[in-house]
Write a protein that binds this DNA or RNA. Structure first.
Length: 643
RNA sequence: GCCGGGGUGGCGAAAUCGGUCAAACGCGCCUGACUUAAAAUCAGGUGUCCCCUCUGGGGGCAUGAGGGUUCGACUCCCUCCCCCGGCACCA
């Protein structure tokens, strides 16, 4: 049992054994039952668009129709899924996937059965990437026919590798005039191409499949449906088919059920027992969890590793008490990561995985941070799990993570640091040189935390400088006696502004780099005037605000200022009154270009602002004697004079 | 090809609802102070082009390219180019 990436040119990368695909019995979670909800409840969670986009695509919901084609020779009906029912009259052949069960039935009745089987075996054996990478489509004509329900045409049935068994029904109606893949195939095998949607000017497309929807498109060559627009035509055709019992609207998903059986040692045992008399019997709740047995060899040898624990495998059937056998497969470890955060809420519970009341108190998780690499596996499985757990009454919510923050990667030499690339820079050495606080500050300062960052070491010296400057300034402040009375002035104002800005940057904007910049600005104000009456307040603010980034430093400085246990202190709060200015700098523009700026009282009425703007000598110079046609006033900001 | 994110000084970046000469904060660089010297530290300067009565002052141009909307655009709209990430025969 190998993972895809362990296969090297058809052989095991370790022992060289040839790899073959085998059918296996597996356990599945019915994730597809939640496909719609996984899409539709995305509005309830605050996640980055790129993650949601990946999940949307992973689920891959598309609306269309299921249309039934009749194979007279076998007396069977074969459904196909299509999003382009409007092109049904353009179908000129019919294709089934190499793995389609019909292939064998057709081969049995065909004089060329061996040829069909041989093709299907070779084509079906090619997996995923190999099949997609194939330059040319291949296929074989079965000699049988499928009847188009809309016009009774008998279409040749082909087996081809470009049709996937995993999607839709594993069979397609081929409309080469309006589908690029069908077109390519038709060209290669000389199959007819019939245009059934054309723009009103009657110009048929020259080459290739015409698939774009345009405003003036109309159905053509489509009998009684000709003349309708493509969407109208699709509806009308599906409606007609439905009346005949030969089709209906349908939704198809890319999402598959989650096969979670693994032939590995490390994973939760799947708690079922096989009994010859009772069949598959779940292990009773009182015997859960089933623990992994101790084994000597973790590697699979044609069987899952647990099969070697023969004593463990042998177990009485919970149903009849007779001889039973455990499941040797273990669960995908993504099963564990789908709910581990629930166990965190109640980690010492030895009666159950968790207590619902406790979990409902703490969860859903308010803020979850991780890498984008989990976008479609862990993050979608966990969402599925919460919905399923809620349905069976184990939790009181349906989404695990209210907010998700996807942090960027540190890059070195233009590519993501990774062990396989050998460009990993360990933090230990940097921590030894600069300290954990300076390193953390620097990594968050270097750029937006949700974007990748290129590692450069030169900048961290600057952060060390900042740390030292803060240390020194706080030390100077601490040596002076605290000022008496109310504190005010520009430094106090700056401190309040910084508190407001950092609080918003961290709490709402997730803009961690600008929060650090704001504290740097405050320090630039504080450092030259540690004897200012507001210096102590400014220093305490700076220390409190830098604490999430540099907890050790902040704690030390807090002690220097004569306090204890900063981590127990509430987050700094600014005084809104300190942010109110009684004057503001009025910007005067002429035709949108700034020509002058001066301080005016905050309560200056609009007409006076305009008068003072016009009176400015600099503005006069640019007005050039022309009359002001219009004046736009933005309160507390600017006046724009239009001439 | 489709989807998502980007493109702003020498570099990392900022500009939060269309409104303060776009570039905060930091790196780098330049000048100066301290020093025998260097490092460290401190002070000042640093988009670009041009003009003037030049220890100062004034103006033009600048946010990937080109158009548009607007009194006003890094911000909104259209077309295109480039970079990064994801998906990729999904009918």
């Amino acid at each position: 049992m190998l993972a895809n990436e362990q296969v090297r040119e058809g052989h095991c990368e370790y022992c060289g054994t040839e790899v073959e695909a085998r059918m296996m019995e597996q356990w599945f979670f019915r994730t597809t039952a939640y496909a719609d909800e996984l899409l539709d409840s995305m509005g309830e969670i605050k996640w980055p668009e790129r993650i949601l986009a990946m999940q949307r695509h992973w689920i891959g919901r598309s609306h269309g129709a299921e249309i039934v084609f009749r194979i007279d020779e076998l007396a069977v009906d074969v459904p196909v899924f299509t999003t382009r029912a409007d092109t049904l009259f353009g179908a000129t052949f019919f294709v089934i996937a190499p793995e389609h069960p019909l292939v064998e039935q057709l081969a049995e009745r065909s004089p060329r059965g061996d040829e069909i089987r041989a093709y299907a075996k070779v084509a079906g054996a090619k997996r995923g990437e190999e099949r997609a990478a194939a330059v040319e489509k291949t296929g074989v004509d079965t000699g049988f026919h499928a009847t188009n329900p809309v016009n009774g045409e008998r279409l040749p049935i082909w087996v081809a590798d470009y049709v996937l068994m995993e999607y839709g029904t594993g069979a397609v109606m081929a409309v080469p005039a309006h589908d690029e893949r069908d077109y390519e195939f038709a060209r290669k095998f000389g199959l007819p191409v019939r245009t059934v949607v054309a723009s009103a000017d009657g110009e048929p497309p020259e080459e290739g499949a015409y698939s774009a929807h345009t405003d003036d498109e109309r159905l053509v060559n489509s009998d009684r449906f000709s003349g309708l627009s493509a969407p109208e035509g699709a509806n009308a055709i599906v409606e007609w088919l439905e009346g005949q019992g030969k089709g209906k609207p349908a939704v198809s998903y890319r999402l598959r059920d989650w096969g979670f059986s693994r032939q590995r040692y490390w994973g939760c045992p799947i708690p079922v027992v096989y009994c010859d008399a009772c069949g598959i019997v779940p292990v009773p709740e009182s015997e859960l969890p089933v623990l992994l047995p101790e084994i000597d060899d973790y590697r699979p040898h044609g069987e899952a590793p647990l099969a070697q624990a023969v004593d463990w495998m042998r177990v009485p059937c919970p149903g009849c008490g007779g001889e039973g056998r455990r499941e040797a497969d273990t669960m995908d470890t993504f099963v564990d990561s789908s709910w581990y955060f629930l166990r965190y809420c109640d980690p010492r519970n030895d009666e159950a995985p968790f207590d619902r009341e406790i979990v409902d108190y703490w969860c859903p998780v308010d803020q979850y941070t991780g890498g984008v690499d989990h976008a479609v596996m862990h993050l979608i499985y966990a969402r599925f799990f919460m919905k399923a757990l809620n349905d069976i009454g184990l939790v009181g919510f349906r989404e695990p993570f209210r907010k998700f923050f996807a942090n960027g990667w540190v890059q070195l030499g233009g590519s993501k640091m990774s062990k396989s690339k050998g460009n990993v820079l360990g933090p230990d050495e940097l921590i030894d040189m600069y300290g954990a606080d300076a390193l953390r500050l620097y990594m968050l300062f270097i750029g937006p935390a949700d974007q990748d960052m290129e590692w450069t070491e030169s900048g961290i010296e600057g952060m060390t400088r900042f740390v030292r400057r803060l240390w020194r300034a706080v030390g100077e402040v601490a040596e002076r006696a605290p000022a008496d009375g109310p504190i005010g002035g520009p430094l106090a104002r700056k401190a309040h502004e910084t508190i407001a800005r950092v609080t918003d940057d961290i709490g709402r904007r997730e803009s961690f780099n600008t929060a650090i910049a704001a504290v740097m600005e405050l320090l630039n104000e504080l450092a030259p005037r540690t004897d200012d009456p507001a210096a102590r307040f400014a220093a305490e603010s700076a220390v409190g605000l830098i604490q999430p980034y540099a907890p050790h430093l902040a704690e030390e400085l807090w002690a220097t200022l004569g306090h204890e246990r900063l981590w127990e202190q509430p987050w700094p709060v600014h005084d809104p009154a300190m942010l109110v200015h009684d004057t503001f700098e009025l910007v005067v523009q002429v035709n949108g270009k700034v020509r002058d700026r001066f301080e005016v009282p905050a309560d200056t009425p609009e007409n006076e602002l305009i008068e003072r703007a016009k009176a400015s000598p600099r503005v006069q110079a640019h007005l050039d004697g022309k009359t002001v046609r219009k004046a736009i006033v933005v309160p507390r900001k600017l006046v724009n004079l239009v001439v």
